[in-house]
């Protein structure tokens, strides 16, 4: 196995950490409740009705 193949790529891990942070921020702001509220109702305009 080549040397380069063993080195871990850090970019995806950094990106993951950043997005997990963003995700946690959203949870802290209470966004999941709003998302759930929206997803529970039919968006008529979204599906081309009304």
């Amino acid at each position: 196995m080549k040397r380069g193949e063993r080195s871990i790529r850090r970019t995806p891990l950094v990106l993951l950490a950043l997005f997990v942070l963003l995700w946690l921020t959203g949870i802290n702001l209470g966004e999941p409740g709003r998302v759930l509220e929206q997803a529970k109702s039919i968006c008529l305009a979204c599906i081309g009705i009304g």
Binding site: L18, V20, L29, R34
Partner: peptide, 18 residues
């Protein structure tokens, strides 16, 4: 309430980065 899409973009980013 500062709903700016952080939860949704965060989720999309986690999926995308993975």
């Amino acid at each position: 309430r500062y709903y700016m899409g952080a939860f949704v973009v965060g989720t999309m980013g986690i999926i995308g980065a993975t």
